Simulated scan of single mutants.
Amino acid sequence: MALDRTSDLNSLGFAKPPAETRVVVAMSGGVDSSVVAAMLAEEGYDVVGVTLQLYDHGAALAKKGACCAGLDIHDARRVAEEMGFPHYVLDYENIFRDAVIDEFADSYLAGATPVPCIRCNERVKFKDLLETARDLDADCMATGHYIQRKMGAAGAELHSAADAARDQSYFLFSTTPEQLSFLRFPLGHLASKAETRALAAKYGLPVADKPDSQDICFVPNGNYASVIEKLRPGAAEPGEIVDTSGRVLGHHEGVIHYTIGQRRGLGIGGLSDPLYVVRLDVDARRVVVGPKELLATRQVPVREINWLGEGAFTDQPEREISVKVRSTRPPREAILRPVSDTEAVVELLTPEEGVSPGQACVFYETGGTRILGGGWIWKGGA
């Protein structure tokens, strides 16, 4: 007899025993996804581990602190062997370059501050990898992301992780309702990373003490400019550092070395007040600097919006929400005013500093944990 009561659903939400539920686990080789795979294997699920080779890891075998390198593939394989489930490595280098790396380079050259991890989730992990999971006849795909999936009146909803310090909702705003119906995030309810490491030790995983990854996988040591120069030779052309009136204060070796809000490393000492990068004029190869108050932004134009709230995005002329314009900042109160199905203007009730084109603007339910979607900041705000 088929199970049809909520209490009879397994931990992944299916009305059948775990042994009859196939789940593909996206394994990066780190402790988070390894714990997810081990946890589900111990519960008796039909686990299949998949690790993506996203770039040429031959030169990165000894690099620590970055995901997706050769050592990480080896670690994922070891976990699968320990827990006794199959593991596959898929070569996604070409897909990753076309969908993520090339846009990262072009956006950076255009003066934006891109977030490639969001594009990777959107265009690779939750698109191509998710389709691969379907091809493997999986019932769902699980990841080690710290975010919660909860069932609401209209279906699956995205909610912030229980541990605010580990919450990854900023990087997952572009997850579509269709993708969300297939995805599972077993770590989102944990109170701390210490709990995850305790589980890794419990399962005897070889990665239990492995450090967290810090860098973007193809950007060693966080040096964006060096990667751009390799991807786009000749991109670092010298130019002038000017104030907002156009007065030349110094010279630089390439706009790609600067980001909005930057203060250090400008090389224009001797001034009485500190100056910040307030604009990048790529065409004129100029870095424009000014006082901190010029960084304050209230009106933020957003496009490529993915809406996860109730009803159609344009149903209401405006909504009171909270937003994040940087992953490291807490949500701030704002007014969301749709311009079209995929564009809007976000009015920040308290101005934010350092709002930059290329960053994401993520929408949250005011006073709650639900993620309502988000979009991309596409030009300087006001």
Rank of each mutant, 00 (worst) to 15 (best):
M1N: 12
D8R: 06
F14G: 06
P18S: 08
A19S: 11
M27L: 15
V35T: 04
A37P: 06
V47K: 08
V50P: 00
Y55F: 15
Y55H: 08
D72N: 15
H74V: 14
R78C: 11
A80Q: 07
G84H: 14
D91W: 13
N94G: 10
V100L: 12
D102V: 15
K127D: 13
L129K: 09
A142G: 08
H145R: 04
I147P: 00
S169V: 00
Q179S: 05
L180S: 01
L180R: 01
S181Q: 10
S181A: 15
R184L: 00
H189T: 03
S192Q: 01
L199R: 11
P211A: 03
Q214Y: 02
D215P: 05
V219R: 04
P220K: 07
G222H: 03
G222C: 11
A225Y: 00
E229K: 08
P233I: 12
A235T: 08
I241R: 01
S245M: 05
V248T: 15
G250E: 09
H251L: 07
I256N: 10
H257E: 06
T259Y: 07
L266A: 13
L271T: 13
Y276I: 06
V277W: 02
E293V: 06
L294R: 14
R298T: 13
I305H: 02
I305K: 03
W307E: 12
G311L: 09
P317C: 12
R332N: 09
V339E: 12
E343R: 11
V345I: 12
E352A: 15
G354F: 01
E365G: 01
G381V: 14
